[in-house]
Design a protein around this nucleic acid. Structure first.
Ligand SMILES: [Mn+2]
Ligand SMILES: [Mn+2]
Ligand SMILES: [Zn+2]
Ligand SMILES: [Zn+2]
Lengths: 138, 138
DNA sequence: GTGATAACCTAGACTTGGTCCAGACATGGA
DNA sequence: TCCATGTCTGGACCAAGTCTAGGTTATCAC
């Protein structure tokens, strides 16, 4: 799924013309479990594809979102981040580093969201803040 | 609490010099249950105080946040909104209008956030998206 | 009251994340 | 091969937010 041919096929399945730029961007943004900003993706992609333009990165990320390969999130700093994890999940934000970590949907139990009076709730997410614990086993 | 004298006293209690500009800003941002942006506050305040500068509004909102009178939130559009409700609560975002509505803390039951493996969770909030239901009683 | 000092405010320049556009380049079908 | 369409590029542009230099206002000592 992360090799050049596999990425190209994946884009085509979603009706996206697999241009060289789009494949290069997809390689960086679809294979990470991080939450990079557009400019971080641009910097990363330029290391192997220096001529790519900023407009193309922004346009391509938008296209991937429209085609369901990515989603966007906004937590703090007024910056949009891209998330390759498009399934339901929650987020933990490390207040010390600003890092965003995914939290599995099953790790939490949210009750009452569906039957909220006055609102038709289509989706929800828990956003947690705190500090990552030093992993004692690592 | 919303008249000029009351606002002035409130600011002084928090160690904030109650200048005319600060009182005018406080009147608009502390008495609403909406979630206005800084530029919305600026526009609103200017109707009764035309000479107030953008820098003063931004600085004053930051000061109010530092003093615990306001909090900031970022949901979408890469814009910071200010929330006079500084207690624990959740948020519902109307996908059609972009409006942000407060949801009382007790309306939802979230379990598992405190004992999340690997993270020390200090706070959390549920962010819901959907549409506001037409209120049939109104 | 007068003057010194600190606090506060203003206008506008600046930064930055993001969009838009006009022209260049690539692709694919007739 | 030619044309139509799709894609990409660089740079101008926009909008939210910050910074700064200088002016105004409040506070306090005398
Ligand atoms: Mn950047
Ligand atoms: Mn911005
Ligand atoms: Zn995520
Ligand atoms: Zn709120």
């Amino acid at each position: 799924m992360t090799d050049h041919q596999g990425i190209s096929d994946l884009l085509q399945e979603r009706g996206i013309q697999p241009s060289a730029q789009r494949v290069a961007i997809a390689r960086h943004v679809l294979r990470t479990d991080g939450h990079p900003t557009a400019d971080e993706v641009l910097a990363q992609v330029r290391r192997s594809f220096p001529m790519v333009s900023r407009a193309t990165v922004y346009n391509t990320l938008k296209l991937f979102v429209a085609k369901g390969l990515l989603r966007t999130c906004q937590f703090e700093g007024g910056v949009t981040v891209y998330d390759a994890n498009v399934g339901r999940h929650h987020h933990f934000i490390d207040a010390a580093t600003g890092e965003i970590h995914d939290v599995p949907w099953e790790a939490l139990d949210v009750r009452g969201a569906e039957e909220l009076a006055g609102f038709q709730v289509d989706s929800w997410m828990v956003v947690m803040r705190g500090r990552r614990r030093d992993d004692p086993g690592a």
